[in-house]
Simulated assay, not measured.
Amino acid sequence: MRTIMKHRVITFGEIMLRLATPDYLRICQSNQFNATFGGGEANVSVSLANYGIETEFVTRLPENDLARACVMDLRKYGVGTSHIVYGGERLGIYFLETGAVARPSKVTYDRAHSSISTIQPGMVNWEEVFKDATWFHWTGITPALSEGAAAVCLEAIRVANRMGITVSCDLNYRKNLWNYGKTASQVMPELVAGCDVILGNEEDAEKVFGIKPEGFDVAHTGGNVQADAFRSVCTQLMTRFPRAKKVIITLRGSINANHNTWGGVLYADGKLYESRRYDITHIVDRVGGGDSFMGGLIYGLLTYTGNDQKALDFATAASCLKHTIYGDFNQVSVEEVEKLMSGDGSGRVAR
């Protein structure tokens, strides 16, 4: 049953200019880039706005034309931007080289000294931001940017906890970002302790907390990821973070850069729910796949009240569709996701 209620979801993190080579070219081959915007938490906000959920994306941006173009892009998708704070030197950039077959995709960051990396506690009025909010979402990318960003993230989590707002996180471990003197294992536990919903992929829990699935090598999936192997990951995370009510693991089997299997599990109240497994044979763009899953999951948990299986199924189907869409943002509707959930993946022309 879909519950029609008014919800307001807040996300906090960095949005960047994305410069991607066209037509599977390597960076050294290309003399042009396709320019779009993207970033984990902003991607979640766009997904939710597409589903009719009121969203607000909080970040820090410089006062220049690139930042103005970025805000205009977010507003185009219906994402709220009224609590963005301004200052700092620059908008971060990431370069994307899309892989093919045995050659993996490659991301090169140019985000040092970005505006959000110099954010400090007190710059955001979280009590005002969270007024009438239902949900707050952050990812492990944000505290990896700087000590200040980590402190502001913790500040937001504590205010949300105090105000009774559901808090979710995507562990999103990025080893190349943790370079300001502290490790993810030092910073993340205090942040995750304030979360009600925890999402990770098959490697995040191991890289951040040393929690491994029993009898399974996450580094070599061969396209075959056994869902039940991750029950132990879920229970270990819940034991370590007792506030968490739900733990979700996305299951990506990588056959090659263009062909993945995709699914997920959700653990709540002692029960493990498993999604359908999708075979995605012609990936258009997998960047933002996890964010599209999180956006679908938040929508499902807010609207399919009490039906964790349906929420998981919606998240998995939404993310499956994202793999067919260019750019960071998942530009699909509830109707399209529910159509795939019902088993219609034919791709026939809609007339």
Rank of each mutant, 00 (worst) to 15 (best):
D313K: 10
S146L: 12
A219N: 12
D23H: 14
L96T: 11
T250R: 10
T142A: 10
R68A: 15
I93E: 04
V44A: 12
Y86H: 14
P213W: 01
R111E: 12
F130W: 12
S115M: 11
S254L: 10
G327S: 14
L145E: 09
L66Y: 07
L96K: 14
I325Q: 12
G253S: 07
I298L: 06
D217V: 14
A205D: 01
G264H: 11
S168N: 10
K175F: 01
T281H: 00
A350G: 04
A193G: 10
T55M: 06
G39D: 12
A227H: 06
T316N: 06
L96E: 01
L91P: 05
E155N: 10
A227K: 13
G270P: 11
V46A: 11
A112Y: 00
K246S: 13
E97S: 13
R68P: 05
S114H: 05
Y267M: 03
A184R: 07
V218Y: 04
L301C: 08
K131L: 02
Q226Y: 08
S146Y: 00
Y299W: 02
T139K: 03
G300T: 02
I283R: 09
T239H: 11
S185T: 07
T183R: 11
Y51G: 03
I53D: 04
G253E: 04
K76Y: 06
V79I: 06
V85N: 02
Y77C: 06
F95W: 07
S105K: 11
L302G: 05
T303C: 15
T261W: 00
N201L: 08
R277A: 03
N258Q: 13
T139D: 11
T98H: 08
Y299S: 01
L91V: 15
A112H: 03
D132P: 03
T11R: 12
T108K: 06
S47G: 13
V107C: 05
I15S: 13
K271R: 15
A229Y: 01
T166Y: 14
G306L: 07
W135D: 05
V79W: 01
D328W: 09
K271V: 04
E41F: 03
I141M: 10
S346K: 01
G99L: 06
A350T: 09
E336S: 12
G80D: 04
G181V: 14
V79A: 07
H282V: 06
A205Q: 04
V284H: 05
D269Q: 15
F230G: 07
N176G: 02
P22I: 10
H323Y: 04
G306W: 01
V332F: 00
A318D: 09
R174T: 10
R111L: 12
H220I: 15
T250W: 03
D23I: 09
G194D: 11
T81R: 08
G222H: 13
A49H: 02
G345Q: 00
N64Q: 04
Q186H: 02
A184N: 03
I283E: 04
V167S: 13
L251P: 03
T316A: 06
T303V: 13
F293Y: 09
R252N: 05
S254D: 06
Q331D: 15
G99Q: 02
D344H: 00
D291C: 12
R60I: 14
E214M: 15
N172G: 08
R351N: 08
Y51S: 02
Q120T: 14
A219K: 13
E41N: 13
A193W: 01
H220F: 04
